[in-house]
Design a protein around this nucleic acid. Structure first.
Lengths: 335, 335
DNA sequence: GCCCTTCTTTGGACCGTTCCAGAACTTGCG
DNA sequence: CGCAAGTTCTGGAACGGTCCAAAGAAGGGC
């Protein structure tokens, strides 16, 4: 016979299926003797509840779907960690789906998750298809984590405070004595925020006219190319703040390639504190984006929203911190 | 009213729910006129089938569960990519769950997947809890991908040919003229295979007595420490084959720290061809573990096993290839 | 116009749970 | 001992689909 059902258990334990259900869900008013008989039968038959049947009648799945944009980006692992902890404690399971892998296939993951009737949805990072998220968010409590867009009605946003993080990085460099500081920017809302904050901070310190911005694309290659452009300028910057760690690694290659020693001749700061930045061979000074905290907060927000779907959408920012490592130092000829 | 059901669609289209079901599953014998009426109603109501209800009556979920050991390991992203493509083409959805994240929580993911009644299970990489996999594999068609263990009855194993990959790496170094070659080993079945093959290859080339093995632990830190030990030997090796890329990066740091230039003074080969090895600042020579191919084969094997659960378990090895990049060169004083 | 065959469509059972109303026991107490 | 008030337990109706046997409609041939 195939997989046992609750009826098989009931029969074996000599009780009704309802009682079995009560025992399994830990109801109080069950005589110990019967409870044990049921548990013994469960054990003997190797019974496992059928999640589909359960969710069909309970009308909830105790499952949240996490949409990732690209598993190759390492920074959200921390975030998932924070997410998972809190959700698990409230009896939720987490299912992951990677948009990047599935995009080519034309599969719409929000659709998959809606069909599964997940209780909630967390979009991690900037997604490829904001429109799909909009329709999904209309039916399922949704939170965006680790990104600042899309802004949708009824969708909370949890991220680190990019404005503040960029300020930390810039002021770190200024504090070391740098005056000619460049920024390699990235696209999207996050890129925009970090760039603006870099510019604002430079301005506040009276360094507006030595601030330079080159455009990158959040990849190593883009960082490399932007850095090559920066370093060939007549007035070469003594420090670079890169929009993320990957960009920073690209800049690092460009620097060494043109004979500059880091940090002696050029200081570099990344963003995200990914494990790439922690490789001792790179050892990038970077901004920690508080991923774990962002994850936890996103989970909390989602749970709140599941309880109360109509609460107004909020933006919740975690505080980033500077992680000073090996790629920053005072400029060689400090003023 | 809450989410529409198939009955709502039927009512709106003026047909029976059975007809709606036929249309949705693409049955041939439905008059075009009715088909369109149904589709229009679906559209108008924003109807989405309920996966739980469907799988309850269909008795299959069209879903396979993928167990990862640690999202932080980048090498299996390629594998997932190969996996996803094939599975999606056969109408399967892929759900990911990360064991590392959930381990601390004590959650047993195989259990979650059993309750979800996934049609199949793919264990990617070496898992933390082989025992749990054994019981799960007893009920669900299962394939192990990217690892060589656990060996379980009825569970296929798909991986790259580690023996061959290690041979490629070792022969690459020997071919460059190296005679004093060391290996930094890793634990587990994979580590064992690579080490054995390194030793065998050295022996075949009459280099058994200059072959050295230091134990690492697959992490950067372990690689660093093993390399420090290797480089402080009286007879310092001129080349190191590391069990994986992370270990190799650690060795790279140790080399540069002790004033050696790579590849001039020391050649290094990694394994896995992760994106870390592709960072232009590291640019490791490495062995490509054919992740995409492994993923595709694993998917195929799983589909076969779903069709025919009792077929004997097989081991299926994909062919790795050498990716020669910047960390290998002939030894300075070639013989 | 009638009967037979071939297409279409439909009602109802079933998948494995939960949940609720009420049945069947226990107790406590007058 | 009888009865009210708890406790425990149980049958049956959902939940939202699929699938099958059979009903109904549409043609075709005489």
């Amino acid at each position: 016979m195939s997989t046992p059902t609750i009826r098989d258990v009931a029969e074996r334990a000599g009780v009704s299926k309802s009682l079995v259900s009560l025992v399994l869900r830990g109801s109080a008013g069950v005589r110990p003797q019967k409870r044990e008989a049921v548990l013994a039968a469960v054990e003997a038959l190797g019974y496992r509840p059928n999640a589909a049947a359960r969710s069909l009648s309970e009308r909830r799945t105790h499952t949240v779907g996490v949409l990732l944009n690209d598993l190759r980006n390492p920074w959200f692992v921390e975030l998932l960690d924070g997410l998972n902890g809190l959700l698990y404690d409230s009896g939720m399971h987490v299912l992951l789906a990677d948009g990047h892998l599935n995009r080519r296939l034309g599969e719409d993951l929000t659709r998959t998750f809606t069909e599964l009737r997940v209780d909630g949805l967390i979009a991690v990072g900037t997604l490829q298809d904001p429109e799909a998220l909009r329709t999904a968010a209309g039916r399922i409590p949704t939170v965006v984590a680790g990104a600042r867009e899309p802004v949708l009605p009824g969708v909370d946003i949890v991220a680190n405070d990019d404005e503040r993080g960029a300020r930390l990085a810039t002021e770190h460099l200024i504090g070391l004595g740098h005056r000619h500081i460049a920024h390699i920017a990235g696209q999207g809302a996050v890129g925009e925020l970090r760039r603006r904050s870099f510019e604002a901070t430079m301005r506040e310190h009276g360094l507006a006219d030595t601030a330079v911005v080159e455009q990158g694309d959040l990849t190593e290659e883009g960082g490399y190319r932007a850095a090559v452009r920066l370093l060939s300028r007549p007035q070469r910057p003594t420090a670079v703040f890169a929009v993320n760690d990957m960009t920073c690694v690209g800049a690092l290659s460009a620097a060494e390639e043109s004979g500059l020693r880091v940090p002696r001749d050029l200081s570099l700061v990344g963003y995200d504190n990914t494990y790439v930045s922690r490789l001792r061979h790179l050892w990038l000074t970077t901004v920690d984006n508080a991923g774990h905290d962002v994850g936890r907060r996103a989970a909390q927000r989602l749970l709140d929203r599941i309880d109360e779907p109509d609460r107004p959408a909020e933006v919740d920012l975690a505080t980033p911190s500077l992680e000073a490592r090996g790629t920053t130092a005072p400029p060689r000829t400090a003023t």
